[in-house]
């Protein structure tokens, strides 16, 4: 295994560290959003702090739930659905 591969191997095993860093980064971003706002709120709601965080979270939830729970069961077929083509 190359040194870069070994590094990736080590990083890949640090689940807890990555998760904690990720949560800390999210909190930091929300804190920054209290101070940094858009000059012009194009959507209206984006003037409020945390609006884009909520948007990303809600859209992520909705996309995954709709696609995995509703759309995929409707359109998934076996590999040979079209025959050998």
């Amino acid at each position: 295994m190359s040194s870069l591969g070994a590094l990736f191997d080590r990083l890949g095993k640090q689940h807890r560290l990555w998760r904690n860093l990720f949560f800390a980064a999210l909190v930091l971003l929300l804190g920054l959003n209290l101070m940094i706002r858009p000059e012009e709120a194009h959507f209206g709601w984006d003037a409020y702090p945390g609006a884009f965080a909520a948007f990303g979270l809600v859209v992520g939830f909705v996309l995954l739930l709709i696609l995995e729970k509703i759309v995929r069961p409707l359109i998934a077929r076996k590999e040979d659905f079209y025959g050998d083509i």
Partner: peptide, 11 residues
């Protein structure tokens, strides 16, 4: 913010 919280939803 957008990407971070989309990542949180996925997590």
């Amino acid at each position: 913010l957008l990407l971070g919280f989309a990542g949180l939803a996925t997590y």
